[in-house]
Design a protein around this nucleic acid. Structure first.
Lengths: 220, 220
DNA sequence: CCAAAAGTGTTGGGAATACACCCATGC
DNA sequence: GCATGGGTGTATTCCCAACACTTTTGG
């Protein structure tokens, strides 16, 4: 499943089925596994060829669905992946695909609605203890932009003030020398930030049960 | 993969292969998926019939491995599961299987060593933000016993004092009226505790980015 | 009475929220 | 100057680790 923050809310790319089963309903892009492929590279090929998606900022495996009744044509196993695209990039997509808000899905084929919701949960959880936001944000961004991306992904308001402090204290984002000019309405120019690393890193490993005498200063 | 805390450390149940490939090396128990089964029930059947395991306290899916070279005989997809057994139960197991400490594995077949380590990581993480300890602990237990189980699973010392406070504050464990008698060396009798619920519950959902004005008191 | 084990009180620090306040720009 | 948006200072709260201290048993 491909997720992107668009117009202030989290969207998933869906493909409208032209044939039964589930004709006319919306499905996640994907396809059968090639004989000598891994699941991840297979999905990469399907996304590139079918929906012309090549600029995926992060991809990870979600879960494998195995209900024998999930496909009326017979047993089909499906391994779902989470793929993220940075806000602002506008991939060319075929006419039978469209972006849909995850919190307001159209009728979906198979168990794809449930997969989309579980992918959203995975993203929401990882935003709070990893740097996975790098895959949703553009190369550089203002804190206000990043706050909107986080808010759209987790589904509730986020304080820009605290977001900046949390992510800088953890070393997830860093300021660049550049600044974004204010709009016509005025206002102070916003510092442009970037993610310190653009590969997935767990930044908040221990919610509790820290090892003894692993003081936060020693953790540096 | 079946995990249990035994003799103060986390063990995994392995089966010694009698035939090539990987003859003599140790593999995770499992087997092919039946035509009309789900992955989870299939694994349940394999564990029950092959290694006589029926008392699994918790099971969840880990990940699906798809490297075309992971099995020299040809392409085999494998979906790994994490299955936990309560400490103290002693399942009958066939003679060609044995418990091995996860931190000191024998030579393993396929990618099963890597799967075992990733399962341990999943368990370690979930211990800190869910009640998953219910699946490793017996029905009732003293805090000292629970501390040993947690320490074996996460791999470092745990303070019984703080463990008790954290888990009771979160409502994960609760005291029973009963107490365990002290040993011959004396000492105050230990209160017996139990897990409030014995199904998986996320108890620490927000490591950061809590919704606004969701005060911890209002969260009750 | 003493050793041993369990449990409670208490202190200190780090992290996160909330909010007041200051900064820099356009008009 | 004033509105607007960006950023910092700071108080409060909560959570957790650490450790001292009390409780309850066996010998």
């Amino acid at each position: 499943m491909v997720l992107q923050v668009r117009q202030g809310s989290l969207h998933v790319l869906l493909w409208q089925r032209a044939e039964p089963p589930f004709e006319g309903q919306w499905a996640l892009p994907g396809g059968p596994l090639g004989e000598d492929e891994r699941l991840g590279t297979s999905l990469g090929h399907h996304l590139a060829t079918k929906v012309d998606l090549t600029d995926i900022a992060h991809m990870e495996q979600l879960e494998t669905r195995s209900d024998p009744a999930r496909d009326p044509r017979g047993r089909v196993l499906a391994t779902a992946y989470l793929a993220l695209i940075s806000a602002g990039t506008e991939p060319r997509i075929p006419p039978d695909t469209a972006w849909h808000p995850v919190q307001d899905l159209p009728p979906t084929a198979f168990d794809h609605g449930s997969i989309a919701r579980s992918g959203r949960e995975r993203l929401r959880a990882k935003l709070s203890y990893t740097n996975i936001g790098f895959a949703l944000a553009p190369e550089t961004f203002t804190i206000a932009q990043l706050r909107d991306i986080y808010a759209a992904s987790v589904g509730h308001l986020i304080s820009a003030t605290n977001l900046q402090r949390i992510l800088t204290r953890r070393g997830v984002i860093e300021a660049t020398p550049a600044a974004a000019p204010p709009t016509a309405a005025g206002g102070r120019p916003a510092t442009l930030y970037r993610f310190a690393t653009r590969t997935l890193i767990v930044t908040n490993p221990f919610a509790a049960f820290r090892p003894p005498s692993m003081s936060p200063t020693a953790a540096q």
